[in-house]
């Protein structure tokens, strides 16, 4: 036990050190971020504070770039995730939290390519309790879904999805969630919607190293402390103890 406590102690000391060294670099960081903001232009998901606070030492959030989506697809995805998890009095929505960047990165990797799924044999229409049997890879399903969002929006509202009012976007997403639209390859829109919904929640609450949950604000909104090492005291306390979130980067030695 004593040994464990030491271990924890050492870790938090190391974390403090990291934090402090981050602070020392603060001035430099800020300078860099301002420059990058001037060079950049689009959509206000990145701010100077955000850039400065990110990953002590870097000047830009290098993670904020696309591996899979086209810029237009990214905009549609960002609009859609924002309706799944909108900005409100609690704090930022999924768009500002970077959920669409998160989804882009995930779709480019092994999750998007269904690397760990069983893909052999024939794909039949499943019975109610047999789980999805979709031949489309997640990345293709997602892309087909984004395309269909635009097609459906144009047909019903005469504009692409990003051009709709939030209430209209909600109507479109509701239709998708109810499986009312058919996507590429005869796939039901419900499958796309459930992937969108799941990945949005992941993008809001997964560790920021994955590209979403910007500055751990997703965690902060629900007073979730992230990936701290232990809660021996908190667990026994009758009072709620709010702790500042920490991410996995604090576990690096």
């Amino acid at each position: 036990m004593a040994e464990k406590e030491n271990f924890t102690e050492k870790r938090s000391t190391r974390r403090n050190f990291l934090k402090n060294s981050g602070l020392t670099l603060g001035g430099l960081v800020l300078g860099g971020a301002v420059t990058s903001l001037v060079v950049k232009n689009n959509e206000g998901t990145t701010t100077t504070e955000h850039e400065a606070a990110h990953g002590g030492g870097t000047t830009t959030n290098y993670n904020h770039a696309l591996m899979f989506f086209t810029p237009a697809e990214y905009q549609t995805a960002a609009a859609a995730v924002e309706r799944i998890y909108p900005e409100d009095e609690n704090g930022p929505g999924a768009k500002e939290l970077g959920a669409a960047v998160y989804i882009d990165h995930q779709l480019a990797g092994q999750w998007g390519n269904n690397v760990k799924d069983y893909r052999l044999g024939a794909f039949y229409k499943p019975g109610e309790n047999q789980g999805p049997q979709t031949k489309l890879l997640r990345k293709d399903l997602f892309r087909a879904g984004l395309e269909a969002l635009d097609a459906y929006s144009k047909e019903n509202y005469d504009a692409v999805f990003t051009g709709l009012e939030p209430e209209q976007q909600d109507e479109v997403l509701t239709a998708f969630s109810e499986g009312k639209v058919t996507l590429y390859g005869n796939t039901g829109s419900g499958e796309f919607f459930s992937l969108l919904r799941t990945m949005t929640i992941e993008g809001v609450y997964a560790d920021p190293m994955y590209g979403g949950n910007n500055e751990m604000k997703g965690w902060a909104m629900r007073k979730y402390p992230g990936s701290r090492m232990q809660y021996v005291n908190e667990i026994q306390s009758d009072e709620f103890i709010e702790l500042k979130p920490e991410g996995l980067s604090s576990h690096m030695s």
Binding site: W111, N114, V115, K116, D117, Y118, R119, L120, G121, Y124, P126, G127, N129, Q130, G131, P132, Q133
Partner: peptide
């Protein structure tokens, strides 16, 4: 992402709810 679990791309189970149904693989 079930990091510590069996990799289903190599093997999984198939499932049906009764003798009458055709079993389909648990794909994830």
């Amino acid at each position: 992402r079930t990091e510590l679990m069996q990799d289903l791309s190599k093997e999984t189970i198939t499932y049906r709810s009764s003798l009458k149904q055709k079993a389909l693989p648990m794909r994830h």
